[in-house]
């Protein structure tokens, strides 16, 4: 590896609502930075090239692959991980629905899956099952066979829609 990649870059960002300043290797991936430097181990590295979605995090409001993003690119960004969304109760209903429907087994894909689901649900409305399945096709789950996840997402979409209209 060339010396260029050993260069460190200073970044200023917000992670889960807290200000973070760090000096990161230029070649470090965002998911590795969050896991190794900040101890936020909820996002997982799995396929390591943007296919499986286990590393999905929220960057400036969008669900993004943490394994395809460099830590250096996070400068100035607002980052949310599953830990932050849990602490703020932002996705409590979704998490409860996943537990109630057993929409997770080993749990390795779950934090990334929740990020992708929340991105879909934040658009509002009640997406039909085909739309849910299509939206989640960037997030692999090897345990559940997906049906329980689709059920859980559908139930939360309905509940949130009811809340809006009632």
């Amino acid at each position: 590896m060339s010396e260029m990649f050993r260069d460190k870059i200073v970044i200023d960002l917000t992670v889960n609502g807290e200000a973070v300043q760090a000096r990161v290797p230029a070649g470090q991936h965002a998911v590795d930075f969050l896991r190794q430097e900040l101890g936020l181990t909820g996002a997982h590295a799995s396929c390591e090239h943007g296919v499986c979605g286990a590393c999905t995090i929220r960057i400036d409001g969008e669900a993004v692959r943490g394994c395809l993003t460099l830590a250096a690119q996070l400068d100035g960004s607002d980052i949310w991980t599953v830990e932050g969304l849990s602490d703020t109760d932002a996705i409590r209903d979704l998490q409860q629905a996943f537990i109630a429907r057993n929409a997770l087994q080993c749990g390795f894909c779950t934090p990334g899956m929740l990020m992708a689901v929340e991105e879909l649900l934040s658009k509002g409305g009640v997406p039909d099952r085909a739309v849910i399945r299509e939206h989640l096709s960037g997030n692999y789950c090897r345990c559940t066979g997906y049906e329980a996840i689709v059920d859980a997402v559908e139930s939360v979409a309905r509940a949130r829609a009811d809340e809006v209209t009632s």
Partner: peptide, 19 residues
């Protein structure tokens, strides 16, 4: 009955070896 370990897994509080 719900799985006792599911609650922490949905919060990203699992402890896999790499953690």
């Amino acid at each position: 009955v719900p799985r006792p370990n599911a609650a922490r897994l949905v919060e990203g509080r699992g402890k896999y070896v790499d953690d």
